[in-house]
Design a protein around this nucleic acid. Structure first.
Lengths: 202, 202
DNA sequence: GTCTATAACGAGATAGAC
DNA sequence: GTCTATCTCGTTATAGAC
């Protein structure tokens, strides 16, 4: 199992796994319950037993994705590397998603935003906020220990970094080139380089 | 009329205007012929007379958008400003689109990419290529006259800049904050600052 | 918890009158 | 060039048997 991608399990989990991949590849309005049912070999009615509506399924999708992401960020923190290494590890999460042929779940949902239910919208924005807060904290730590030298506030830099990564993912898929993302991520991290430590983009 | 947004005209043009706004706000799979027909006060059958299929309509949409964009880029070139001013003018095109509550047409279609027809996919990638080529040319000019100091090749920098702008647009809409885009765009341009000229982010 | 069956509606698309 | 009418299929969702 990868850091944030799918796992095996009971029916509800398998439904989420299938739907997650569909949203990450086709968008929230680019798939139907029939697609999931066919893939899992069950009926649409069975899906509705687990997730009464598509909006409920969508919300569950974002919540699970956010929890997994939070877990991945905690593991990076617990690994205890320096701020530049943490940022490099962060970009590898996205590279892994891309290598699986997918985009960030919430990056896709940002495009579909206007068509989403209110609970889904709030959950998407919460995901972005959590990511930017984590990044801002790492940037602040790096500024304090001299390993990073962001221009401007940590929060502003975190927003620009996160946006840069989401944009690089968005464009990498039409080109079918993960290295397009990796190059852009490497550049973004390099632009934050401090005077004290070397960069690692792995 | 704005640089790249809609205009008035005959029925085909009005269909394109309506569909364009729908794609830019809801995505290609987030609207139907019925939405356009209702907005224009015509029947769906009439739409099919002008654009036989949704894929044909989508292709016409990208082609018109690309032509308008090329026109906007030519006007920037003809205005004869220095490279930093050209980049600032370029970001203002996107800010204008965002202020109208829309995202970049092709940024939205990049998210929907997997669900698009082959001709639409090719047209989306062509749009990206044209933008990156124009940006790379401006970056090369700026490097030559000392007004810009990109790190790495012009082409690589152009890709990162374009991705950064598309990502910033993608995230600005869920937050309903155009200034989120403007801040990110200002940062991106500032990071390219040369030793010779001042920055303008307008 | 999964099934069959079906409702109720919306989608893209076409035929042919005007 | 636009209309009415219709087709066919896909969509979300529900009722009720097993």
């Amino acid at each position: 199992m990868s850091a944030v991608n799918q796992a095996e399990g009971d029916t509800a989990t398998r439904i989420l796994d299938s739907a997650e991949r569909l949203v990450q590849t086709r968008g929230f309005n680019g798939f139907s319950y029939a697609d999931i049912a066919t893939e899992l070999g069950v009926t649409k009615a069975s899906l509705h037993y687990h997730f009464a509506s598509k909006a409920e399924l969508g919300l569950a999708l974002i919540e699970r994705y956010s929890e997994r992401f939070e877990g991945a960020l905690e593991r990076i923190d617990e690994a205890g590397g320096e701020p530049p290494a943490k940022l490099a590890a962060y970009t590898r999460i996205f590279a892994e998603v891309l290598r699986d042929g997918r985009n960030c779940l919430c990056g896709m949902l940002a495009a579909d935003f206007e068509t989403l239910s209110e609970p889904m919208r709030a959950a998407v924005v919460a995901f972005f906020d959590e990511n930017e807060e984590w990044l801002a904290r790492v940037l602040a730590d790096g500024t304090a220990d001299g390993s990073l030298q962001p221009e401007g506030s940590a929060r502003e830099t975190a927003q620009a970094l996160f946006g840069g990564l989401e944009g690089a993912m968005l464009l990498a898929r039409p080109y079918g080139r993960v290295d397009r993302f990796e190059d852009a991520a490497g550049r973004l991290l390099a632009s934050l380089a401090g005077s004290r430590a070397a960069q690692a983009t792995g």
